[in-house]
Computed example of a mutant assay.
Amino acid sequence: MIRVLLVEDSATMRGHLRESLAADPELHVVGEATDGGQAVEMVGRLRPDVVTMDMMLPTMSGLVATEHIMAEHPTPILVVSSADRQELFSTYNALAAGAVDVLEKPRGDDSDADWGRRLRSAVRLVSRIRVITHPRARLDRRRPAGMAPPPPAPAAPLPTAGTLRLVAVGASTGGPRALTDLLCSLPAGFRPPVLCVQHIAASEPFAEAFSDWLAGQTGRDISYARDWTPVEALAGRVVLAPPDRHLLVRDGVLRLSDEPPRYSCRPSVDVLFESVATELGAFAAGCLLTGMGRDGADGLLKMRTHGGVTFAQDEASCVVYGMPREAALLGAAAYVLPPARIAARLAELHPAGSRR
């Protein structure tokens, strides 16, 4: 039995959630909250397996409620959000604060036909994720006031500095937070383009809001990839794979592809990593961040065998230690580190002012 707490101020939407979940006898609604404060109290009292969280709530917003829940009673949270731009920005803030996935609310069109099935599938998926206390809350509780953070572990030797031409990054569940940490930790003068595949809701409003949100969080030039863009023109920029299109590098330009999904994923991290391995070899770095499944592990191994420097996110900092774990088991990752320390190693490979 999977015990679910519904957090939604609309009685109509709560009824829709309740009825949709009732179609699966193993999904049991244990409570319904209509504002964020009530949600935090009920999570502490009922200890559900999953919380479905609306963002726009009275008294206490869904974002603030998410932050409290992840700091006090870590619970897998599925954000059920509309495509309104303000709500989408709150949704990505909630994902950065520890929520693990997002499902768009019904649109009122033909796409709603299988919405209930998608909700049930998402709840089941989220229920299997082992969440941790929100990192900031954990640090605040365990580190006495005034105590400096522990020094980083000694760095393993890296290839010759100044040789890095491109960074390829893959992420899935938990990716918004990990990407933010990595990009914020890169120095302002970091010039190699960063190509990124983030598994995310495929609808256009969700995708557009994600690129804008990530740019606002990191202060970097972030956009979606355009077919036939020369890689040389992307210095200092972060480029995302568009929704439902593979992103790859071929003959010095970005290419977008509608080829079949890999491991049910389009865009696929493997497709990006494999193309970068073939195209750039030892002049590229690959970073595989938090996510469920194994997309990216084979591609990261190919990057390493072609001479590229490869990183996987460490288990302690992952929301889901799935994709990075598969890479580590394959021996694909030369370095296993949290995102901020991956960024520090990348900066060592391309110090400010270095040239090809």
Rank of each mutant, 00 (worst) to 15 (best):
T310N: 03
V197T: 03
C196T: 15
A96V: 00
L46A: 11
T310L: 04
A145W: 09
G293D: 08
D24A: 13
L21K: 01
A39W: 01
T163S: 14
I200A: 09
R356M: 12
G170T: 10
L280A: 07
L158D: 01
A334G: 15
G331Q: 12
A83F: 04
L17Q: 05
L329A: 15
L186T: 02
A97C: 11
L329K: 12
I222E: 03
S275R: 09
G281Y: 05
L125A: 11
S275A: 13
M70T: 06
A241H: 10
S354F: 10
L195I: 12
M303Q: 12
A97H: 08
A344S: 12
A99H: 00
L288M: 04
P324A: 11
L27G: 04
V194M: 05
L301H: 12
R304P: 01
D49N: 09
R14N: 06
F311G: 02
C265F: 05
S223R: 14
A297N: 09
D227V: 11
L179K: 06
T180D: 05
R120T: 04
V320E: 01
L254V: 05
T91F: 03
A122C: 00
T52K: 06
R141M: 15
R138K: 11
P154Y: 10
D314C: 10
T305G: 08
R141L: 14
M53R: 04
G307V: 06
E41L: 07
T278Q: 14
L166Q: 02
D54G: 08
R45S: 14
D101M: 10
A148V: 08
T160Y: 02
S185Y: 09
D314Y: 07
G219K: 10
P74M: 08
V123Y: 03
S61E: 00
Q313M: 11
F283I: 06
R143T: 04
R355Q: 12
P159W: 09
T12M: 12
L272W: 05
L301K: 11
A316M: 15
C318Y: 05
E232K: 13
L179Y: 09
H134W: 06
A39C: 05
E67F: 02
S203P: 00
P176M: 07
D114S: 07
D221V: 11
L240T: 00
T160P: 02
A225W: 03
G281K: 06
I222L: 13
Y224P: 10
S121W: 00
S317W: 04
I77Q: 02
R237T: 12
E208L: 15
P151A: 15
A225I: 07
D9R: 08
D251Q: 15
S317C: 12
D298W: 07
V40H: 07
V64R: 14
S111W: 03
A334P: 02
E274S: 14
V131T: 10
M147W: 10
A137Y: 06
H246M: 01
R220N: 08
D35P: 11
A284Q: 07
V194D: 00
F206K: 01
L95G: 08
D298Q: 15
D298L: 14
S81F: 00
D251T: 13
L288E: 02
D181Q: 14
